[in-house]
């Protein structure tokens, strides 16, 4: 594959030096903090890395609608119901912005979705955990969206223009998600004994998976170095995880809830929290598809896709009958963003 060839010396000497110059010019643009736009030349590996990352991100938003969507019909007040619908709907919107950004790189959304449904594409493992009680909706907003924000804010400055712009929009919209989650947790934590217990139980179950959201330790992260060089990534997994823990632990204390980590302690010298070892075998298992809800999540997406096929076909058939030929556009044509 061309992607791998980039890392090794090129075959033909002339071709190689020309290629090297192009790569150098590209890297220089990135180093000057210029944005790369869809029609600009880019190394194939850069394009593929972006497609993979943006698609994973988009899939995560779409699959992420399911665990929270699970509680829309059971939200305990009309206000909470409206907030939850708006939030789950935002996630769908974010998935859409991200698929749009990916499409500017020359892939069709249909192909990306096909990869998701066939199990070839990854999405954030956090969404393979079940939402068992109402408090899980609070925990997801507070912890999962909190972790996502840590990851996403630096992406607003990502070198690829359409991705960076999508992230700006997403981060702006996302800011209510975490606040509503924390407010929900606060209400439960200050509520009845049963509600408090529900909140603690949710924290117990979501804490470690949230920390896993930042990915493997830097020593084991395959893509980090190149992605940092390309400014697709701005901080390492461990840096972001530490930052998340440092801001979240005091928030848990304010709730009067206990973080389920006996090794957690404040380290005066480094001014960081020290925390226990993450169970990476669980992380790997869920990643491999052996988490509690992997099967259900993909099944739900497949069902939506299959059940919707006749609808999508009907709309295409109707358009073909009724649109003036001049206005008929080519499906799947290249995007511009």
């Amino acid at each position: 594959m061309y992607t791998q060839a980039l890392d090794s010396p090129a075959a033909g000497a002339d071709e190689g030096s020309e290629e090297r110059e192009r790569l150098e010019r590209f890297q220089a643009r990135i180093d000057r903090d210029e944005k790369i736009e869809p029609k600009d030349w880019m190394p194939e590996a850069y394009r593929q890395t972006l497609i993979r990352q943006i698609a994973q991100h988009a899939h995560s938003e779409i699959v992420g609608m399911l665990p929270e969507g699970n509680w829309i019909t059971r939200a305990p007040s009309l206000r909470r119901k409206a907030v939850l619908i708006a939030k789950v709907q935002d996630e769908g919107g974010h998935g859409m912005y991200l698929y749009s950004a990916a499409e500017t790189l020359g892939v069709a959304r249909g192909d990306l979705i096909e990869q998701l449904l066939s199990g070839r594409a990854k999405y954030s493992s956090i969404f393979n955990y079940p939402t068992l009680t109402w408090a899980d909706i609070g925990a997801i907003g507070w912890l999962v969206d909190g972790a996502a924000i840590m990851n996403q804010v630096p992406l607003c400055r990502c070198s690829y223009g359409p991705y960076a712009r999508a992230m700006v929009r997403i981060c702006k919209e996302e800011s209510f998600h975490q606040r509503q989650g924390y407010e929900l947790m606060l209400t439960l934590a200050r509520g009845s004994e049963a509600q408090h217990a529900m909140a603690q139980d949710a924290l117990n179950r979501w804490w470690w998976p949230s920390l896993m959201m930042f990915g493997p330790n830097d020593a084991h992260s395959v893509h980090t170095a190149q992605s940092m060089r390309w400014k697709i990534k701005r901080f390492t997994n461990d840096e972001l995880r530490q930052k998340f823990i440092d801001v979240t632990v005091p928030q848990a204390e304010y709730l009067g809830l206990t973080v389920p980590d006996p090794d957690l302690r404040w380290d005066q010298t480094s001014e960081h929290y020290r925390f226990g070892e993450i169970d990476w075998s669980e992380f790997q298992a869920v990643l491999k598809g052996e988490g509690p809800c992997n099967r259900e999540r993909l099944e739900a997406r497949r069902a939506a896709h299959e059940n919707g096929r006749w609808v999508r076909e009907a709309a295409v058939a109707y358009a073909a009958k009724h649109q003036a030929p001049a206005h008929r556009a080519q499906a799947g044509a290249g995007a511009l963003s």
Partner: peptide
């Protein structure tokens, strides 16, 4: 049967 919708810029 075709189920691909058209990409529109907004």
């Amino acid at each position: 049967m075709n189920e691909d919708w058209v990409l529109y810029e907004v």
